[in-house]
Design a protein around this nucleic acid. Structure first.
Length: 945
RNA sequence: GCCCGGGUGGCGGAACUGGUAUACGCGCACGACUUAAAAUCGUGUCUCGCAAGGGAUGUGGGUUCGAUUCCCACCCCGGGCACCA
């Protein structure tokens, strides 16, 4: 028989599949649908890399299984082809970007076909194709119509190297995500999309995405960064304009001892004539504006700022005058661009106050509720308030402190106790020190105020809310009397240093006491109010509402998410379809005139002036106003690279439609995407933008679902040998073409699926590829053993198990274990004398997902004239998933001491008895009667002595 | 600092709902075939020990007859966010 020649086989079948169009989407609606999508590639000049192969093979394997299981599967691909790399390459090599794109997509398509991927190539799309971007422009017009696209002149992020404005999402730290250049701020006209209008829905609907990795949902939640708080007005003493601040801690309002505005806050210049040190202020504003993000980060937490002399704000809670500062630790874009500073309860304000010698007023006494055992508050039991003390007692000569180790419960605490009628806290504390430790001469050295703790007092069996005055003592000497028997029964006195205290102290309130002891005055948690007039004694959550109401503030939600800066001053993108008319202002291009074609030009270098290269093409720029007919100019900015990818998945459903974006019937039929496969780098960019557009399209009735992607599977990076990133610079990039040539596409596909858990990063290893190749060669050889006869029992069981396991594993993207199971089955085939045709065909069918070419060839050799890829998924026999016998393990005191074999379905008692009678039991027990015998059905007998 | 992952042989990794840790693959060693090599096949391969047996899933504790798996504390690696009031 002929040998396994992958080159011949793979070419033969790829041609045939294309010719016979076996992978076109089944549009019959009798079958259930499955829309399996991978994140379509950006066709770079580098061609496909092994990371692409991993994603595309996974979705291909999944799609193939779904088809075999009777689904009609939509599995398309296309090109996300607008964008800077292509444009830059085009400039460098003096080629039109259109041509570069054509060449790159040709390469990608060729490589994808070499992999034997089962895409429906008749649905291929390209974001740079006018018939596609017509609809990208159309969506923009709808956004404009709804007021969700607007022009802005706010300073934006600008990449001096790419010569274009950027969105927040295009940053990698302080650098341009594309080219690594440090970005600047630059005031210029730009188009912005109001994604913040959708912030709440984008967060709330994350709850619908239970089939997304938690990490993606959390990343988005984080990025959107919602926080609930209040807007509070602080009047300015000699101006009618108040300062508005946003705070999440209105409960600390009485502790606001100064205010801070962002340096670029509008009020700063508005108050110019009142500010007596204007020269200095102006200097600070200018230098803050010049400071790059990188300089600010380098300065870390060293706060800078300057007081606005001549003006004072009035704290609306206590009517006290407080100074007003500007400082660059306050950001203009967040909240209201101004804060009330509460140094006692905010770390940043605390640092600033320390540096500028500002008053620090405590208004919150820390309060803690025990949430873990021992001491978790018992629901339903009343809570007793108790005036108490915490005494921290220092050694007379060493840096050690007394702790009590409780005997009836796993607690380590400082000395605690109640305050009796008529006692001061100090008296109570001294009494407790003497009673609980016997030491006679403590001297009060410090008072940490009151700490509150709600917990279940285990020995006393009550819920307590202890309000403990926390006092620090030092022992004058070691003089000590005997401790009473009752006390020594309750706890043991131990001496601990600060590190040990941090490790062992159980209650949170005592840990807080230790923090103060270590000099950490600032407390940012919640608690009970003090120094807050009529609100004293109230707990933080309640005080937030009450105080906000009291001073007439408004509850408000703030977001970290910014509106999406949507214009780029570059050539290779979708033209924004509006014109500027002197009389009518911004006028949208009528929908009938779409697409606004990107003109072919000689020069498309970025100008760097804030205008795109399109501005230089007069014939294109000059047009007439659709409204009044007078001369007007076209918008010359283009859309960012993320535009097309924000809705492309919809177009696959109806790629040829030239009347509407998508036929509503088809949309309802295929949406949502059932499985979306791609990389984690898109968690906060593409996936937020696409969800935003999708929700907008839902609002204008283009789509019918709230979310576009039901399930998301994230691919792990493939690292170069040695666990380092693959890069051109390091010369460790693996080209799939080379692997396909040497080992074949089937081997490459198997290798990449076998390399490790799909979502986890894996290391490429050239040596290991031989494993999957040997496996396929073995498959080829085993095919020759097909003959008449019976399958061995063992192989028959394995075959059933394999069909079951491979199906289940692929459903949850556990490709590596599916392959290992097929390897085990193949070994069993190999060691048998005879392999039956039927069983081998079942094996070929499941293997065909991973290795479509070799299985198709062997299938044909077995006499079939139709494709193996149109076969249904093999069935397994439930009754043959296990053999006739099972091995029972004997454990004695938790250690494995032997095993024996029993028929499946044996009587429990009989097996137990046989286990107890086993020779190893005799040996290890030595005649002693077992205390306990545990039998786990079909698995083990565990004997305890 | 905060939020997610992850830590198991020489390497990639497996282990169901707590039930024989190290499946499968690579590598390595030895053997068979061969004049020889490659390929292939077979055997072995966590560790200490001659053996009986002991130890080992990042570290330390806990729960359990039994823990890679559950709980607590900590360490290390990767990723995301980061002066967000």
């Amino acid at each position: 028989m002929k040998g396994y020649d992958h080159r011949k086989i793979e070419k033969k079948w790829q041609d045939k599949w294309l010719r016979e169009k076996i992978y076109l989407t089944d549009e019959g609606d009798k079958k259930p649908k499955s829309f399996v999508l991978d994140m379509f590639p950006y066709p770079s000049g580098e061609g496909l890399h092994v990371g692409h192969v991993r994603v595309y093979t996974a979705s291909d394997v999944y799609s193939r299984m779904k088809r075999m299981r009777g689904y009609r599967v939509l599995h398309p691909t296309g090109w996300d082809a607008f964008g800077l790399p292509t444009e830059n390459y085009a400039i460098k090599n003096k080629m039109p970007p259109q041509k570069v794109t054509k060449e790159n997509t040709d390469t990608f398509r060729r490589q994808m076909k070499l992999l034997g991927l089962s895409y429906d190539w008749e649905r291929e799309i390209n974001t740079t194709d006018p018939s596609f971007y017509k609809w990208t422009q159309w969506i923009f017009l709808q956004l404009l119509k709804k007021g969700l696209a607007y022009e802005s002149y706010e300073p934006i992020l600008w990449c001096p190297s790419c010569k274009t404005g950027l969105a927040n999402e295009d940053l990698d730290g302080n650098e341009c995500e594309r080219c690594g250049t440090v970005v600047e701020k630059r005031p210029m006209r730009q188009w912005v999309l109001k994604i913040t209008d959708y912030a709440d829905r984008l967060i709330d609907d994350l709850d619908l995405l239970s089939e997304w990795p938690l990490a993606f949902r959390e990343a988005q939640r984080n990025w959107i960064g919602r926080s609930e708080g209040a807007v509070i007005k602080f009047p300015i003493s000699n101006s009618q304009f108040p300062i508005e601040v946003f705070t999440t801690r209105p409960d600390t309002l009485f502790g606001a001892t100064y205010m801070v505005l962002a340096p670029d806050h509008n009020l700063v210049s508005g108050l110019k004539d009142k500010i007596t040190n204007w020269n200095e202020v102006e200097k600070y504003v200018v230098s803050a504006g010049k400071k790059t993000e990188i300089e600010r980060t380098a300065e870390g937490k060293d706060k800078t700022g300057i007081e606005l002399k001549g003006i004072k704000a009035i704290n609306p809670a206590n009517k006290e005058e407080v100074p007003v500062f500007i400082a660059d630790y306050v950001l203009k874009e967040y909240g209201t661009g101004a804060i009330m500073a509460v140094p006692a309860h905010d770390e940043r304000d605390y640092e600033f106050a320390k540096k500028f010698n500002l008053p620090i007023v405590k208004v919150i006494e820390p309060s803690f509720t025990q949430t873990t055992d021992p001491g978790k508050v018992v629901e339903g039991l009343p809570v007793e308030d108790r005036e108490a003390i915490i005494a921290i007692v220092k050694h007379w000569s060493e840096d050690k402190y007394i702790a009590l180790k409780w005997k009836s419960v796993a607690w380590v605490t400082f000395i605690t106790g109640g305050i009796e009628e008529g006692q001061t806290a100090e008296e109570a504390a001294k009494m407790e020190i003497m009673e609980e430790t016997g030491y006679l001469n403590p001297e009060l050295t410090d008072d940490f105020g009151t700490l509150h703790g709600k917990f279940y007092h285990v020995p006393k069996k009550v819920n307590r809310f202890a309000h403990a005055s926390t006092l620090v003592f030092k022992l004058k000497n070691s003089e000590r009397k005997e401790v009473s028997e009752d006390e020594s029964k309750m706890h043991e006195v131990i001496w601990l240093n600060k590190d040990e205290l941090a490790k062992f102290l159980t209650p949170d309130s005592h840990q807080r006491a230790l923090e103060i002891l270590n000099g950490k005055e600032m407390y940012a948690g919640s608690g009970l109010l003090i120094n807050s007039g009529q609100f004293n004694g109230m707990e933080s959550p309640e005080a937030k509402k009450e105080i906000t109401e009291f001073i007439g503030g408004q509850m408000k939600t703030a977001y970290k998410l910014r509106d999406w800066v949507f214009s780029r001053q570059r050539y290779w993108g979708e033209p924004i379809p509006v014109v500027h008319c002197e009389k009518d202002g911004v006028v949208p291009v009528p929908e009938a005139e779409l697409p606004i074609l990107l003109p072919e030009v000689k020069f498309y270098e970025p100008t760097g002036t804030g205008e795109s290269p399109l501005a230089g093409i007069e014939a294109w720029v000059n047009t007439t106003c659709p409204k009044c007919g007078s001369p007007a100019k076209r918008e010359t900015n283009t859309m960012p690279q993320w535009a097309g990818s924000s809705w492309y998945y919809l177009r696959f459903i109806d790629p040829q439609n030239n009347k509407t974006l998508i036929d509503p019937k088809k949309e309802k039929d295929w949406m949502p995407v059932d499985v979306y496969v791609g990389g984690a780098e898109h968690a906060t960019r593409h996936l937020i933008y696409a969800r935003f557009w999708h929700k907008f399209l839902k609002d204008i009735d283009i789509v019918s679902t709230d979310e576009p992607f039901t399930r998301l599977e994230s691919v792990g990076l493939i690292l170069g040998e040695g666990g380092i990133k693959m890069s051109k610079r390091l010369g460790n990039v693996v080209n799939p073409d080379d692997i396909i040539l040497t080992y074949g596409a089937d081997t490459l596909r198997l290798y990449e699926m076998f390399i490790g858990p799909f979502s986890q990063a894996s290391v490429w290893n050239m040596k290991s590829i031989i494993g999957p190749r040997r496996f396929l060669e073995k498959v080829w050889r085993v095919a020759e053993k097909i003959g008449d006869g019976e399958l061995s029992d063992e192989t028959a069981v394995l075959l059933n198990q394999t069909i079951k396991k491979v199906g289940e594993d692929i459903e949850v993207f556990k490709f590596n274990t599916a392959i290992s199971q097929m390897m085990i089955l193949l070994s069993s085939f190999e060691s048998d004398k005879i392999v039956t045709k039927e069983s081998f065909e079942s094996f070929l069918k499941i293997l065909s997902l991973f290795a479509p070419h070799i299985t198709e060839e062997l299938w044909e050799d077995l006499g079939h004239t139709s494709s193996i890829h149109s076969e249904p998924w093999p069935k397994y026999d439930e009754s043959k998933l296990a053999g006739d016998t099972c091995t029972i393990v004997i454990q004695i005191n938790g250690k494995v001491r032997g095993s024996f074999v029993v028929p499946v379905g044996s009587d429990d008692e009989a097996v137990k008895k046989e286990g107890l009678g086993h020779e190893s039991v005799q040996k290890w027990l030595g005649g002693v009667d077992p205390k306990k015998v545990v039998y786990v059905k079909g698995k083990l007998v565990s004997i305890v002595t």
